[in-house]
Design a protein around this nucleic acid. Structure first.
Lengths: 164, 164
DNA sequence: TATTGTTATACTCTATAACTATA
DNA sequence: TATAGTTATAGAGTATAACAATA
C-alpha cells in the first residue's frame, strides 16, 4: 500500500488538521456507543474533579458523601460495590473522610464485623456546598439539552443499567 | 445522633440487604448524571474487554484499530488526544499493534517528526472480527432500548460532547 | 523556539495475599 | 467455613523529565 502523497493540512483523507475528536466521530470508532460514553465520562470526570477541589474533595469522596447524605448508612462493603472499588481501597477512602469529621464509621450492633458509614452534620454541610457545584457543572455540560431531553437521557441510562 | 437500632435486612432506612446499586439510585447520588455515566462506562468497559480477549485485543488497541479502520491515518499525537493518553503511552500502544502486523507507523513526508498510523490488511481483518463482537455486546447491553431510543441516546451524547 | 516521538523513571493507583474478628 | 474489614505489598498503570530529530 503506497503512502498517500501530497498531504495538505485539512484537506486529505482523514481530516488531518481538523479536530481530532471530529475525525474520531467520522471514523468507525464514532459508530460505537462506548466511544461517546467514555468521552463523556472523561469530560464529566475532569470538570467535576476541578469543581470539587474548592471543597477539597475528590470525586470518590464526593460520591461517598452523596451516597450517605440522606441518612443512608451503608457498610464499607456496600460502598465498595457501588464505586467498584476493592474493599481495601474503601478503608483509605472512609478513613480520610472520618479524619475530617465528615462521617463516622460505626460498628453494626447486628454484625460486629461490619462498619456502617454515617454522615455527620459537618459532612452534610460540606456535601450541601459540593452538590451545588456539581449541579452547576452538570447543567453547564448539558446546556445543549432541553429539560425534557435531559430527563430522557437519564432515563435511557437508568434503563440500560443492570439493577440486580 | 443515635445509631438506628433493631435493623432487619431489607426493611430499614437505607435498604440494607437490597441491591446496593438500587440503594445508590435512591440516594442523592442517584440524582446526578455522572453517577449513571460512570456506572455505564464501567459496565461497557468490563463486557467489551471480556469480548475482545478472544481477539487478543484490549479496549485501547481495539479503539486504535477502529479509529484507523477506514483508512484514516492519524499521527500518534492525534491518537493520544482521542484516547486521552500521554504521548509516551501511545508509543507502547502503537508499537504493540505494529509488532503484530496490524498497523504500520510511517514517517510523514511532510513532517518527518510525526508518524502516521496506517492499518494493514491483517489489521483490517482483525478489526472486522472484533467489531462484530463489540456490536454484539453493545446490542445486548442496550436491548431494553428501541432502535429509536438507541439513536436518541447516541444523539444526546453527541450533542453534549464539546467538538472544538 | 516549539513540536513529535522516544526512553527511562518516578509516582500513583489498583489488586493480591495474609490476617483478625465475627458470623 | 464464610464474610467484613484491615494491613502490607506487589503489580499495573500513569505522569514527568530529559532527550533527539525536525519544523
Amino acid at each position: 500500500m503506497a503512502f498517500p502523497s501530497a498531504r495538505r493540512s485539512g484537506t486529505e483523507r482523514g481530516h488531518r488538521g481538523a479536530s481530532p475528536l471530529r475525525a474520531a466521530q467520522d471514523s468507525p470508532l464514532g459508530s460505537q456507543l462506548f466511544f461517546y460514553l467514555s468521552q463523556m465520562e472523561h469530560v464529566f470526570r475532569t470538570e467535576l474533579s476541578a469543581a470539587l477541589t474548592e471543597c477539597e474533595l475528590d470525586l470518590r469522596q464526593y460520591s461517598t458523601l452523596a451516597f450517605i447524605a440522606d441518612g443512608h448508612t451503608p457498610t464499607q462493603h456496600e460502598l465498595a460495590q457501588i464505586l467498584h472499588l476493592d474493599p481495601s481501597q474503601v478503608v483509605t477512602l472512609s478513613k480520610s473522610l472520618e479524619a475530617r469529621g465528615l462521617l463516622v464509621r460505626q460498628t453494626l450492633p447486628t454484625d460486629r464485623r461490619a462498619k456502617a458509614l454515617v454522615i455527620t452534620e459537618v459532612g452534610r454541610a460540606i456535601y450541601s456546598d459540593a452538590v451545588k457545584r456539581v449541579r452547576s457543572v452538570e447543567e453547564s455540560l448539558t446546556a445543549s439539552l432541553s429539560r425534557r431531553d435531559h430527563n430522557a437521557l437519564k432515563s435511557f441510562l437508568e434503563r440500560i443499567l443492570p439493577l440486580s
